[in-house]
Each structure stands twice: as structure tokens, then as C-alpha cells.
Design a binder for these strands. Structure first.
Lengths: 197, 197
DNA sequence: TTAGATAATGAATAAATATTCATTTGTTGA
DNA sequence: TCAACAAATGAATATTTATTCATTATCTAA
């Protein structure tokens, strides 16, 4: 019974990852249940023993991935006291997670709109991320290493957007270069700007 | 005949904007031809006298909008010699265009994935934008106001991503604040970074 | 070994909606 | 006014694909 249950869980994740591969390849809307089932090596009907419907597959996929990624991020950024190092750890972790799971990266960057439709709390996802950033920036301000006269909201969305932009570019280039190695130059840019002093 | 033709062109743009409104409200996939037709005040079949199919509506909408927006941007950034001022003009223009046409803003930020599917040259769109940036940054380097030791690619995608992020946030906030007023603080951040010196 | 339970199958169904086209309505120039 | 043409209509059709469910296969425990 235990063994059987493990089998079931395995099959669940097989399906989830199969779905991820198909969604990433074709986008959610052009993905069909038949294709996902084929990719997972099961019959169409089997999908419905594990998921309520097509939307639910995407929902569960994202739930699973975000939980995993945010755990990693939390651990990464809590591994230091200095704000700048915390930030570097967070960004490095972010880039690594996306580099290591390109399907997830593509889906996050593709299905943003649809996420709202299925009432997936995208807001809560980015809110959690923005909360990391708030904490880091405020800490830096207390430590005296980060400017005090910042538009907080802007500063946070700015770096999040910039990271997103860099990931989008990497996806467009079909992951042909090392994303993680962008982390430090990216944070340097954020810290120091482009102006020649 | 001339008058009639004007009428036809008017109707074409009426449909295009109706489509924009529906796409922005529901997203491309949940938008139906019937809804677009209703919004435009015509019969379903009429749509097909002006557009090849549903994809073609989105394609033409984006074509029309990007042409318009890039013309504005080109004019805005060419209105100065100094690199930093050029950049400020570009970003201000970008934010203003999106603020003034929220449907366009939403569609650009929602249907990114689908754009690839219909082989719309999204790459060419952002390439054009990135070319503006290249020119501006290189000019600043020549003028001595911008650092020479930058990862060009990163620096460009960084600011594009950051602007995108700020627009996304504005959309999520349902356009409740003035987007254009973010332009200068945004460029300040890009120029000087967040580090306290 | 096997009865009963659980899981998987995939062909059939249902629903949604993009697209067509026979018909109607409107326009123009003589 | 009206013949010839152009434009618009919207009900009917075609297609696509998510979902169901009767049937079959597999597993478990006594």
C-alpha cells in the first residue's frame, strides 16, 4: 500500500513535469490534454484521475514550483547579514533556479496573463519576492550601505523587472549562455548605476 | 468613392480598437469574434471582411501600435544631444505612450507568449528599442558621462526590464497613479544606483 | 489463488467558437 | 428611378478539444 502510494506520487510528478514540458513548448492554450498524456505516457483519461481539469494542471504546476523556489530563495538570502551580500545571494539563487528549470522559466514568463484568469495569486508570488527585497533594502539603509532617499516601490520593482528582463533575454537566446554568471554584474549595476563618476 | 473609402478605414480602426479593448479585458484567448464584433457594433461576419482570422486581428493591432509608438520614441530621443537627456526623453515617451493607451499596455504585457506563436517579430520590436539604447549608451561613453566598463547587453536589457517591471506594476495597480512621473526617478536609479556613497 | 478493490484506458460525447456563405441592405452613377 | 455593384449580416457549419464513463487491467490481502 505504501509502495503503491509512492508509485502514485511518482506518476503525479511525472504528469506535472510532462505538462510543464508541453506548456513550455507550446504555451498553455495550444497544449492539449492528449499531448500531455502522451508526454507522460498515460491515457488521456488518466490525467483526470489526478487533476480536476486543464487549468488545475497549470495551477498545481505553478504551486509546486513556486513553493520549491521560494524555499530556496529564503534559505539563500538568510545566509548573510550584510544587505548587499543578501541581495547577491537572492539574485544568484533566482537565476540559478530558473536556469536549472527552463520549463518553469518559460511558463512563468509566458502565462502571466492566464495566471490572473485562473485566480492564481500571482500577486502573492511577487509580493513574497518584493518582501525579500524590502527587508534587504531596509536593512542596507540601517547598515548605512544603501541610500535613504529612494522611492522604495520603484527601487524594488526596478530590480525585479531588471532580473526578469535578463531572464527573458536568456530564454529568447534559448538558454545558450550561463545565466547565473549574470548575477554579480547585475547587482553591480543596481548598486552603482551606469554613470561615470 | 473617396468618402466611402474613408468610411471603410474608419471602420477598420473602430474594429482594431474594439479588438484592443476586448483583448485587454479578457486576454486574447478568452476573447471571441462575437464579442469583438459586438464591441465594434458590427456583425460577426463583417470582421472577416477586414481580417483574415482571429490571429490576424492581434497581429494587425500590434503592428499598428508599434509603428505609432516607435515613431514617437524616435522623435523623442532624437530631440537632444546629451546621452542622459536622450535617455530621459526615451523613457518618458515610453511611459507616456503606455499610460495613454492602457489597452495596448495590457496586451503587450499579456500576450507575449502568443506573439511568438503568430510569428510576430517581437524580437524586431525589442531589437529596435535596444538599438535606441545602444546608441544612447555608446554616445554617453564617448561623451564621458557613462561608464566604459559595462556589459553592454546586460546594461540594455537591465533598463528595458526595469521599465517593463514598472509598467507591469502600474497595470496591476489598474493605472491608479501617474506613470510618467516615474520616468525621472527611474533614470536616476539607473544612472546612480542604490548604493550610498 | 482469487475476490474485491483500485487504477488506467481510450473511444464517445459535449461544448465552445472560429469561420463560411446565401441572403439582405446600402451605395453610386447615369 | 434604378441597375449594377459593394458591403454587411447572422444563422448554419466545421473543427477542435476538454471531459466523461463503460470497460479492462492491475494490485492487494486473506
Amino acid at each position: 500500500m505504501q509502495k503503491n502510494n509512492i508509485k502514485k506520487i511518482d506518476k503525479y510528478y511525472t504528469m506535472l513535469n510532462a505538462a510543464g514540458a508541453v506548456f513550455a513548448r507550446l504555451g498553455f492554450h495550444k497544449s492539449t490534454i492528449s499531448l500531455i498524456a502522451a508526454e507522460a505516457g498515460v491515457a488521456d483519461g488518466t490525467i483526470y484521475l489526478y487533476f480536476k481539469n486543464k487549468d488545475d494542471i497549470l495551477y498545481q504546476f505553478l504551486n509546486y514550483k513556486t513553493t520549491t523556489v521560494f524555499d530556496k530563495m529564503r534559505r539563500a538570502s538568510s545566509g548573510a547579514d550584510d544587505a548587499e551580500i543578501k541581495l547577491r545571494n537572492l539574485i544568484r539563487c533566482h537565476l540559478k533556479a530558473f536556469q536549472d528549470d527552463k520549463n518553469m522559466a518559460v511558463i512563468f514568463h509566458s502565462e502571466v496573463r492566464y495566471l490572473r484568469d485562473i485566480e492564481f495569486q500571482i500577486k502573492d508570488i511577487s509580493k513574497m519576492y518584493l518582501d525579500f527585497l524590502t527587508e534587504i533594502i531596509e536593512r542596507g539603509q540601517v547598515q548605512g550601505t544603501i541610500k535613504r532617499n529612494l522611492f522604495m516601490g520603484l527601487a524594488k520593482h526596478f530590480i525585479l523587472g531588471a532580473v526578469d528582463g535578463v531572464i527573458t533575454t536568456w530564454i529568447a537566446a534559448e538558454g545558450k549562455y550561463d545565466l547565473v554568471s549574470m548575477a554579480d554584474p547585475l547587482v553591480d549595476l543596481y548598486m552603482n548605476g551606469i554613470k561615470n563618476n
